[in-house]
Simulated scan of single mutants.
Amino acid sequence: MELFADSNGRPRRQLGIRTVLALALTTMVAGAATLLLAWAWRNSPDGLQIDRWAAALVGQGWSAPFAHFMQAVTHLGDPATLAGIGAAVAVFLLWRREPVFLLGWLGALAGNAWLNLTLKDIFMRLRPSNDIGVSTALGYSFPSGHSSGAMVIYGMLAYLVWCVAARRWAVAMPVLALITILAVGASRVYLQAHFISDVLAGYASGAAWLALVVAAVEIWRATQKSLSP
Rank of each mutant, 00 (worst) to 15 (best):
A211G: 02
N112V: 03
E98A: 07
M70R: 06
S135I: 07
D46L: 14
C163R: 15
A113K: 03
G16N: 14
A170I: 12
R97P: 01
G149V: 01
Q49N: 11
V89A: 02
N130G: 03
G86T: 05
M124F: 15
V73T: 06
A90P: 07
A113V: 10
L102M: 09
L176F: 08
A165I: 04
L176R: 12
L37I: 08
V217N: 00
L36F: 09
L109M: 10
E218L: 05
R13N: 10
L76F: 13
L227S: 09
A113P: 00
P174T: 07
I50E: 04
S144C: 10
A177F: 10
A32G: 11
R127T: 07
K120S: 07
F142I: 15
A72T: 13
R221Q: 13
S129I: 14
A113L: 12
D121V: 11
G31M: 09
A177E: 01
L76A: 14
P128E: 02
A177D: 01
G104F: 02
G107W: 00
V58T: 11
R42W: 09
V199A: 09
A83L: 15
A33F: 12
L106T: 08
N112I: 05
S148R: 03
A211S: 10
Q192E: 05
R221W: 08
S226E: 06
T34Y: 13
F66R: 07
R97T: 04
P11G: 06
G206L: 02
H68N: 13
R168Q: 04
P128A: 02
F69M: 13
V91D: 00
F92A: 14
L178S: 04
A24Q: 11
Q14W: 11
L82V: 11
L15G: 02
M28P: 06
S197N: 05
W95S: 01
W169V: 03
R96Y: 01
V184L: 11
R221D: 02
L200R: 11
A166V: 08
I17E: 07
V189I: 10
F69Y: 13
G206E: 04
A165V: 07
A172C: 11
A22K: 07
V213K: 03
S187T: 10
R10T: 03
A186E: 01
W169K: 07
R127P: 01
